[in-house]
């Protein structure tokens, strides 16, 4: 079944960012079929009960340079479980706050099918994300990355089924 779905297992040391978060019994698979220019790496995490998480490395244009983020989405609930910034060069006193938990937590629980939008002061609905103050472009870049991952998630799920 796994082979037919088009993925193969990876050695953990090939992808340390994900391997560090694995629970006992979990394995990582690389899923080349759903990779794009902006999502150059797609992984699934599975255990004995099946595929649990989809992890996507996304590259977007920040204010200063490219931002590389890792978006983890639960397969069953299709909710964002974690957003991690792997690489950025944003200015420390503007967009540099993008790595802070209080900002990344704003994406947790967002669902596939939602098209997230950016707002400035407070979110009025569950699909709105409050931007980092004074760093709209950086915030928009992270938001775009998460939106891309959420959109790709639907295709990946379809491909796995």
């Amino acid at each position: 079944m796994l082979f037919a779905a088009g993925y193969f297992f990876c050695a953990k040391d090939q992808i340390p960012e994900i391997a560090n978060t694995l629970q006992p019994g979990e394995k990582i698979g690389s899923l080349k079929k759903f990779e794009t220019d902006e999502i150059p790496e797609v992984f699934i995490v599975e255990d004995d009960e099946g595929v649990k998480k989809i992890v996507q490395k996304v590259i977007t244009d920040g204010y200063v340079n490219k931002i590389v983020l890792l978006v983890t989405i639960a397969v069953n609930s299709e909710e964002v479980l974690e957003v991690e910034i792997l690489q950025h060069q944003e200015s420390e006193d503007y967009g540099g706050y993008l790595t802070e938990d209080w900002f990344l937590q704003r994406f947790i629980g967002k669902k596939a099918g939602q098209n997230l939008t950016l707002v400035k002061m407070s979110a009025k609905s569950s699909d709105q994300i409050v931007a980092i103050t004074g760093a709209t472009k950086t915030s928009a870049a992270v938001l775009r990355g998460v939106n891309l991952a959420l959109q790709n998630c639907a295709s990946i799920k379809g491909g796995l089924e």
Partner: peptide, 11 residues
Amino acid sequence: FLSPEIPKGMY
């Protein structure tokens, strides 16, 4: 004092 248009350093 804060504003969505200014960085945190100006708060």
